[in-house]
């Protein structure tokens, strides 16, 4: 019974802490990490009209963390007049990706088919990634809206990774690993990952070895990117709530351990 009460107290306090931190606006000091800077610099120096692929390889469940990363990166590439081919290797990422890509493109007055397009979803990610190295239009004969890829101006002279400057995989799992292992290893394609914070350590070996060009991780990564871009957004807003939740968990761990050691000392004293 006491344990149930404690549990509800923890849930209640965490809920209140998150609600309050979401309701107030405090701009936290964020120092951009080297990898976020590297990603930003890469986009800044990419020649206008270059073509990149943004793959929305995530589920709807991780949207609160993934969306700020995707939004700020999309805004940046459109500001730099970089052309975007959107796609998804996750069925759920398809509708989300199309929605985010279209909204960001409209903000900058971009034209579908000329400045951006969305290819949609392809099952069996390994064969899709490998197949795109041979011919993108063979894997995606039509785009998400049912247009023949051959008839889309953006796809003129683009048939495989040779014409793609960078692949950005916005992922909440290990789908970006497949981009690295198949598009990167076999076709020498540069890959950047936009990841949930929990996945960052999984990608560290690839990042350290240079197989992954760079990454933007979690709400903090999004907030860092936003500070470099010069316009705050979902990353900064969510970061305060996430920071408060982390801080709350740290306090819980410390309190839990104090109680544990106190009880242990008491039971030793009784013996």
């Amino acid at each position: 019974m006491r344990s149930q009460k404690t549990r509800w107290l923890i849930y209640g306090l965490l809920f209140i802490a998150i609600i309050i931190s979401y309701s107030i606006t405090i701009q936290l000091k964020v120092t951009p990490s080297p990898f976020v800077k590297k990603t930003f610099e890469y986009m800044e120096h990419l020649p206008p009209q270059s073509v990149i692929i943004i793959s929305f390889d995530h589920e709807a469940s991780s949207l609160p963390e993934i969306k700020p990363i995707a939004q700020i990166m999309l805004r940046h590439v459109f500001r730099q007049n970089i052309r975007v081919i959107g796609m998804s290797l996750f069925a759920e990422g398809t509708a989300i990706g199309y929605d985010m890509l279209t909204k960001a493109a409209r903000e900058f007055g971009k034209t579908y088919g000329e400045d951006y397009l969305f290819l949609g979803f392809k099952p069996q990610y390994i064969s899709a990634i490998l197949g795109m190295g041979e011919s993108i239009r063979r894997i995606f004969p039509e785009d998400y809206l049912g247009n023949r890829v051959d008839s889309i101006p953006l796809m003129k002279n683009i048939d495989n990774y040779n014409s793609i400057a960078m692949v950005i995989s916005i992922a909440d799992g290990d789908r970006a690993v497949q981009w690295i292992e198949y598009a990167g290893a076999r076709y020498d394609q540069k890959v950047i990952a936009g990841l949930t914070a929990a996945m960052i350590t999984t990608y560290d070996p690839y990042l350290n070895s240079g197989q992954l060009y760079s990454l933007v991780g979690g709400l903090r990564g999004a907030a860092e990117y936003e500070s470099l871009y010069g316009k705050l957004g979902g990353g900064n807003r969510g970061l305060l709530a996430q920071s408060v939740a982390h801080f709350f968990i740290i306090i819980l761990i410390i309190v839990g351990n104090i109680i544990y050691f106190k009880n242990r000392m008491q039971s030793k004293g009784m013996k």
């Binding site: 344990s3 404690t6 549990r7 923890i10 849930y11 965490l14 939740a245 709350f248 968990i249 819980l252 761990i253 309190v255 839990g256 351990n257």
Partner: peptide
């Protein structure tokens, strides 16, 4: 949060 308090 609950597991961190009880198990960590």
């Amino acid at each position: 949060a609950s597991a961190a308090y009880r198990g960590f």
